[in-house]
């Protein structure tokens, strides 16, 4: 994994680059998971699925740019990801989306705690917030209560 920041236009310490790579990994996974979930969720959920997938792709691309600016090589996506639980129906697909959003939330809070760069901080709090908002509707669809956790991203 690249850890140096030489040659980039933005200097970031190693722990920030590592945290961003972790966040990028969760964004790759989220993009993949949204694709899988669409096969199990009803038509009514498709707009939210499209919105979430689009947002995660945009976040993935922005994070890759940030890493390249810092002189690092963005981590590649895996060919496939293993859902934490078997996905067999709409509820389990929604639960998989909840855990994907939880994973990105934790990773982006991790970036907040390992960065001082203000642009990185802004990107991280935006990503954390957007993820927390999307998780609400997937929790409701998965029948999970409460639909809101008090501290999104707290591991």
């Amino acid at each position: 994994m690249p850890t140096t920041t030489t040659g980039g236009s933005r200097e970031l310490p190693e722990e920030t680059v590592d945290a961003l790579q972790k966040a990028l990994g969760t964004e790759h996974a989220a993009v993949w998971v949204y694709g899988l979930a669409s096969a199990f969720l009803p038509a009514a959920a498709q707009p939210a699925l499209t919105e979430g997938a689009t947002a995660h792709r945009a976040r993935r691309d922005a994070t890759e740019r940030l890493l390249r600016d810092a002189g690092a090589t963005p981590a590649a996506s895996a060919p496939a990801y293993l859902p934490p639980n078997p996905v067999t129906d709409a509820a389990s697909a929604a639960a998989m989306l909840v855990s994907a959003e939880n994973d990105t939330s934790v990773a982006w809070r991790g970036v907040l705690e390992r960065s001082d760069d203000q642009d990185v901080r802004r990107a991280a709090v935006d990503a954390l917030t957007a993820s927390a908002v999307r998780a609400v509707s997937w929790r409701q669809r998965a029948g999970q209560s409460p639909a809101v956790v008090a501290f999104p991203g707290r591991p």
Partner: peptide, 22 residues
């Protein structure tokens, strides 16, 4: 969030996200 010390940035970021989720 952009200007806080690191630990506080995490806490306050989660508070912002929690409010948006509510």
């Amino acid at each position: 969030v952009p200007t806080l010390p690191r630990y506080r940035a995490g806490l306050v970021g989660s508070v912002a996200a929690g409010c948006a989720a509510l």
